[in-house]
Design a protein around this nucleic acid. Structure first.
Lengths: 212, 212
DNA sequence: GTCTATAGATCGATAGAC
DNA sequence: GTCTATCGATCTATAGAC
C-alpha cells in the first residue's frame, strides 16, 4: 500500500543468490521497520510504541526488542533505511530522464504519495518537530537525511535554471529549501484541514518556476 | 524572554480596574500556560508532561490539574489563548501601517522570534506533525488557528498585489499557503541543521515577492 | 527467533487534608 | 489554591524458557 516509490529491496539483496526460485518474503526485521516507518509518519515518534507494532504484526513486545534493543535503535535504523531507499530513488530518476522538470515531478511524487496514503507527513517534518525529544543517533541520521535530500534538489534546480527549463530568482540553495520546506509544511497543514491545501501549495510552487 | 510579540495581556484585563496601583503579577494559571506553550514549541505535545511544568514553576503536579483537569484541557486552552493573542497582534499591525510589505514583515517577525529564542518551532508545525495523536478538542482549535492565520495573510497578499507593492503569480490563497508552509517547515529544518537555513528560506520568499 | 513474565520508570489523574 | 499520597495505565526494557 505504501512505499511504492521508495520501495525497499534489501530483502532481495539479503537473500542467497541461488538459482532456484526463492519465494521467501520480507523478514520480520523488515516488517518491523515497515510498521515503524508508517507509525512514525502517521502518529509521530513519541506517539508510537513497541506495542503498536507488536499488535500490528501479531508478535510480542520482546520479539521487537530482539531485533532492535532500544526504541532509539529502531528509529535510527528506520531513518538509515529511508536514506538508502531515497538514494536509490534518486538514481532511478537520474537514469530515467535528463529533464530537470521531470526530476522535480519525481520529487513531488514522494509527497503526493504520503498525501494519498492519508494523514501522513514526511519523515523530515516529524523528526524536525520532535527533534529535541529524540535520541542523538536519530538526530544525526536526520541531519544526514536532510543534507542528502537538499543536495540533490539543489542540483536539479541548478540544471533547470541553466537549461532555461526552470526559472527562479535568488539562489538554487534558497529555492530548493523553500520548495522542500513548503512541501513539508503543506503535508502538515493538509492533515489538519484538507488535502486541497497541499495541491494549492504544489500548484503555487510550479507556477513560480514556470519560465515566461 | 519570549512572547514579546504575541504578548499576553489577559492578566491586566482580569485585574480589578481600581485606581490604586495593583502590582499583582500573572496568575498561576497564566504561568502554567506560558510554560506549556514554550514546552510545546520546544519539545512537542507528546514529549512534555505536567511534571516538566511543575518543576519549572516550583509547584506540584496536582496544582496544575486543579487549573486544567486534563492535559487535553491545557493544550486546548493554550491554543485558544494563542489565537487571541494572534488576533491582537494582527490588529496592532493593521492599526500601525497600511503598507502590505510592512504587514508581511510583521508576519515574518513571529517566526524570527521563535528562531531567535532557540530551537523553537511554530505551534502549527508541532500540532500538524502530531495532529493524529492529540485530543479532538485540540484538533478543532488547531483548525481554527490555521484558518485565522491564513485568512489574514491572504488579505495582506491581496492588498499588496492590488497596490503593486507585491508581485506573485498564481492565487493569493496559494501564495499565502506556500509562504506559511515554507516558514513552518523552515523552522523545523533550521532546528535540525542551523539557523541560516531559515534565513535562506526567508530571503527566497522575499526575493520571489519583489516587484520588477 | 519468539515466547511468557516482569521489572522499573513515567505519566495522567484523583482523593482528601490543610 | 496548593499540598501529600497514591492509583491505574502505559511504556521501555530485561530475564529466562522453549
Amino acid at each position: 500500500m505504501l512505499r511504492r516509490l521508495l520501495k525497499s529491496d534489501t530483502a532481495d539483496s539479503d537473500r542467497a543468490s541461488a538459482i532456484e526460485p526463492c519465494a521467501k518474503g520480507p523478514t520480520t526485521k523488515e516488517l518491523i521497520l515497515d510498521a515503524a516507518e508508517e507509525l512514525l509518519q502517521r502518529r509521530s515518534y513519541n506517539a508510537f510504541s513497541y506495542q503498536h507494532i507488536a499488535v500490528q504484526l501479531g508478535i510480542r513486545n520482546a520479539a521487537i526488542h530482539y531485533h532492535f534493543p532500544s526504541k532509539g535503535d529502531l528509529g535510527t535504523a528506520l531513518i538509515r533505511r529511508y536514506r538508502e531507499r531515497y538514494q536509490n530513488y534518486i538514481r532511478q530518476i537520474e537514469s530515467g530522464t535528463t529533464d530537470p522538470r521531470e526530476m522535480l515531478q519525481g520529487f513531488f511524487k514522494i509527497y503526493l504519495e504520503y498525501l494519498d496514503a492519508g494523514d501522513m507527513v514526511c519523515p523530515g517534518g516529524v523528526l524536525g518537530a520532535e527533534f529535541t525529544s529524540i535520541p542523538c543517533s536519530m538526530q544525526e541520521e536526520t541531519r544526514l537525511m536532510l543534507r542528502e535530500i537538499y543536495e540533490w534538489l539543489i542540483s536539479v534546480l541548478l540544471r533547470g535554471r541553466d537549461s532555461g527549463q526552470l526559472r527562479f530568482g535568488g539562489t538554487p540553495e534558497g529555492k530548493a529549501l523553500e520548495i522542500g520546506c513548503a512541501l513539508q509544511g503543506a503535508l502538515q497543514i493538509a492533515r489538519c484541514t484538507d488535502k486541497d491545501r497541499f495541491h494549492l501549495v504544489l500548484q503555487q510552487i510550479e507556477a513560480d518556476l514556470k519560465p515566461v
